[in-house]
Nucleic acid binder design. Structure first.
Lengths: 216, 216, 216, 216
DNA sequence: CATGAATGAGGGTTCATTCAT
DNA sequence: CATGAATGAACCCTCATTCAT
């Protein structure tokens, strides 16, 4: 975890450091990500970074946490009041939240994505945790749907959840392939309205197919 | 392309080198994959590798080719005689082939998987080509299915194909999560019969869901 | 150009690094000069050198600049007040300066010398520039001498200048052959008075011959 | 010295090897010259070269000998019958021979030239020997000229000889600068007649200046 | 708390040389 | 006598990390 000195930093400086670190880890492996380049871009001394974080792994862990928390925050905002929706509305909402996350924080999404594959300095369990947590959330929803009869009873909740999450996490790549929006471009302007409506269509089609796949 | 010296190598030695290289590139980025570690594991001199391959990129390209060709070989074997099957049988067969590939050559699958995302020394087009080619194959199948009325006409073939491929390529991770078979373990013994039947069930469930998702 | 970190270095350390680099590049090609040997001799870490210079070429360029500037400084000191001297006095002065340079900084002279022939990482033009600049300086002097009637009009200024420069640049080798002063020896003590007077005689003889060669 | 196996080689093959070695050592330092590239160009096995020569130094020594012998052969041919010429005719002849050598065997000349400066695996004395031998030859001639009264008695024979040799050895570079003939170009066609006459003029000017420099 | 120079291990690559075939 | 794969030291360069200021 970051040392307390990091929290004492002026807001803009702290944010600048985070941004540069996110940029770097979104583009490279854990191993290939370069501390030197992060501090260079952020305009801080190399030693300073080691007063905020114990080491490279510490910084990386911090970013992974940032991914989880940001996603969680979006979830929380979306699901604040509505406790009980029909399943497919819940699903749509959830799906929509995660899609928004991909669109709003493409680099964070990429970091989380990279973390699930390939060796990393963190215990494997910790890494998969993120994905499994998401899957579990879907599993819960699906089981509720089965209880209300909205979903066919012969559906294996975990497998269905897995397909949903997979499609979702790959969606980002597909979107950029189809729309030409490169998630890696740093100063990517906002997507155009035309692109946004195309993205909207992509997500609805996906949801429709998956819905048909499991609906009763 | 590898130098001819590589082909002249005794079979076991050549295979050992390939295995070690596959191990390394399956676990790491192109950038982080270490030639030094490969030769150390393979028990050859560092200079020797450079008599087999021009450079790191050359070795990497060779592995990517190995991925394509291995997959192609499995496809060829599976689709030899049956030119025209009902769509969902074709799909099942195709899906089954790719699943087998993931199971039999998990590391090769991982290398191909890594190649489609993140920076690499190869022209981006060449890299995405693999995935897009697979998607196109599914698109063709789906369009045929729409023509024969097996698939609902309002399905966007490309999106459906994308979901299939995504689920497929992520499946490996899911399988190892569920069965405890670690794809990264080098000397992974064969999966037990119990594991195999569980895997079988997973794939069939996935296919069922996807089939329901698009069937007429 | 060297990074600013190099200028911030304690004088003695900076000088030690320069000396070792000069030693190495005076003895070897650009290609064969070894960074590893430089840092070993200088007693610094290999990584440190790369905090002073971007790369090998950067260090080399710095040394070439050092050659030019050192020579220029000696020239400036010698030619401060006397704007218009009779030609052969000018020539003598100039010749004397360059000879002093060869004697005082034999290794720098050697580096500059090497740079004019053989392949190097710098644009060829930039490399020859040094030598050609020197030749041009002589050409100007000689043409002035022709104008004042001191020099025979049928002399080709450029060719004469070339002979002067050639003799000058080879002189160092000759001096060490005759006097036993090895230019390569690092801790060469100062030349003895006897050696100095012999050197003086050598230069005067050379000048005399060349003077007779072109005088009117 | 080369092993006897080298002499047993078919003439064309032996010559091809020599040519490629000359090319390489003319372009690079002793240290940078690459055995690998020589055998690659010559189209022979790397091991073969080590059956002709003990090692890199052996090959290098062989080439240096080739330089001496080629030059000696040209001298011998030029000075066969005429035992006693007036000094300046002797000088002209000698000068002309050495110029011819530079023009006919620019690469050999370059190898010899490189050998006199920079560290090499051979004992320094052996290296300077070549140059000193040439100087001694001039010294003898000049002393004869002094005896016959053609040359001023106050001329230091050794210094004069040194200037001659220096001018001569640098001449090659100057010629290529002025005429655009690159000595390094491998497949350099013959010089044009216009270039040849310019070269002729250059050499005559040089000789004239030097002659005036020492004539009585 | 900020700094940034110092460090040395490790990265990919090339090399002269050897030796079994 | 020809071959060319094997070798490991050395090449230039980058890196995460430390520590004196």
């Amino acid at each position: 975890m970051p040392l307390q000195t990091f929290d004492n930093l002026p807001e803009d400086k702290r944010q600048r450091i985070i941004d540069c670190a996110v940029d770097e880890f979104a583009q490279h492996d854990y191993a290939s990500a370069s501390i030197s380049k992060i501090v260079a871009k952020a305009g801080i001394a190399k030693g300073s970074l080691y007063q905020y974080f114990n080491d490279k792994t510490d910084l990386y862990t911090y970013l992974l946490d940032l991914v989880s928390q940001t996603k969680a925050k979006m979830m929380a905002k979306a699901f604040r009041q509505e406790n009980r929706m029909p399943f497919f509305e819940s699903l749509l909402a959830l799906f929509s939240v995660m899609a928004s996350f991909e669109l709003q924080y493409p680099k964070l999404a990429k970091i989380g994505y990279k973390a699930t594959s390939g060796k990393s300095p963190l215990p494997e369990d910790l890494l998969i945790k993120g994905k499994q947590a998401t899957i579990q959330y879907f599993v819960t929803l699906i089981n509720q749907g089965k209880a209300t009869g909205e979903i066919r009873p012969d559906i294996d909740a975990e497998i269905a959840a897995f397909i949903f999450v997979s499609a979702l996490s790959e969606m980002g790549n597909f979107v950029s392939m189809k729309t030409g929006i490169d998630k890696n471009i740093e100063d990517s302007g906002k997507p155009t309205p035309a692109q946004l409506s195309e993205i909207e269509r992509l997500y609805q089609q996906v949801i429709m197919i998956l819905k048909n796949g499991i609906a009763n």
